[in-house]
Design a protein around this nucleic acid. Structure first.
Lengths: 150, 150
DNA sequence: TCATTATTGAAAATGATTTTCAAAGTTTCT
DNA sequence: AGAAACTTTGAAAATCATTTTCAATAATGA
C-alpha cells in the first residue's frame, strides 16, 4: 500500500515535471509511516528528528504537493493547526471529534453520502466533495466527567 | 425577530454582567440587519461606514460575544476569513458552497441529522454539534462553464 | 458625585503559513 | 562528462487574520 502510494506520487511528480529530491522522499516516507492526523508541526518534528537539515518551509510545500497528488487530505479543526491525513483514491471518510480531548475517529456512512448527493442535486449543484465533522464528547471523557461528579 | 434577538443579547449581557455600550448596539444592529454570511472584514467596513470611530478589535470582540450569546455562528470556510451567520436558538442548518464563486446556500436535512446522532451513539459519543459543508459547483457556474466550452 | 470596574481604540504582538532569494541540486542537451 | 537551464531548498523575512496590551474613556452602583 505504501509502495502504491509512492508510485502514485512519482507518477504525479513526473506528470508535473517535478524533480525528485531527498527531502521529498524523506517527507513522503515519514508521512506514509504514520496513521494519525498529524499537524505540520508534528510532522516537521518527526522529519527533523531523522533529518535535521530539512526546513519547515519544505515540509509545508511538500504536504501541499501530497494534497495535489491526491495522497493526503487537509483537515481543518478549530485549533488553528492544519492536519493532514491519508487519502486513497476514491475512498473517503468523515470525522467524529472529541471537544474535550480532541480525539479523532474516522467513519463512513453511505446513506449520508447518498443524501448529500441528493441535496446537492436538488439545488442544481454538482457535488465535488464535502466536509463533515461530528463534534461531541468521547466515551472516555464522558466517563471521566461522570466520575468527577460522583 | 430582530427585537427578539436584541432582547436575547441583553439578557445574556445582563447575566454576564456586561455593560451596554454604543459600540455593541451599533454592531448588533448592523449584524442583525444583514442576512448574508459576512466576514469580520465586511462587517467592520459596514460598521465603520456609519460609525467611523469603532475599531476592528471591538468588532472582533463583539462578534465573539454574539457567538457566546447564541445569536451567531462562526463559519470557517477555506478562504481564511471567518464568517458569521445568524443563529436562532434550537435551529440549525448546513451549507452548500460553490467552489467557483463561493456562493453559500443553506439547507437542513432531518434524516442526515438523525443518522449523525446514530453514528455518534454507535461510537459512544455524546453529540454536541456538527459541521457539514457540501462543496460543489452551483447552477450558474455550471452553466457558465458549459457556455465557455461550446 | 465618586469609586469601581468594564470597555474601547490604536498599536504591538502572536502565530500559522507563505514568500523571497541566493545557494545547492537535478535534469537535459550535447 | 560538462555546461546551461531550470527546480528546489533553507533561513529569514514577510503576510495576514486574529488577539493582546495598555492607557484613556465610559458605564454602573453606592
Amino acid at each position: 500500500m505504501i509502495a502504491e502510494k509512492k508510485k502514485a506520487f512519482n507518477a504525479f511528480a513526473a506528470k508535473k515535471g517535478l524533480r525528485s529530491t531527498r527531502q521529498r522522499e524523506v517527507i513522503l516516507d515519514i508521512f506514509l509511516s504514520t496513521h494519525e492526523h498529524l499537524s505540520i508541526e508534528e510532522l516537521y518534528l518527526k522529519v527533523r528528528a531523522s533529518n535535521p537539515g530539512i526546513g519547515q518551509a519544505t515540509v509545508y510545500r511538500t504536504l501541499k504537493l501530497f494534497v495535489e497528488a491526491g495522497l493526503a487530505r487537509e483537515l481543518t479543526l478549530s485549533d488553528g493547526h492544519t492536519r493532514y491525513e491519508h487519502q486513497m483514491a476514491g475512498e473517503h471518510h468523515d470525522h467524529l471529534i472529541c471537544l474535550n480531548c480532541n480525539a479523532i475517529i474516522e467513519f463512513e456512512d453511505e446513506t449520508i453520502e447518498r443524501l448529500q448527493k441528493e441535496i446537492a442535486e436538488r439545488h442544481g449543484f454538482k457535488l465535488v466533495t464535502h466536509k463533515m465533522q461530528l463534534c461531541g464528547i468521547c466515551p472516555s471523557c464522558r466517563k471521566a466527567a461522570i466520575e468527577k461528579v460522583s
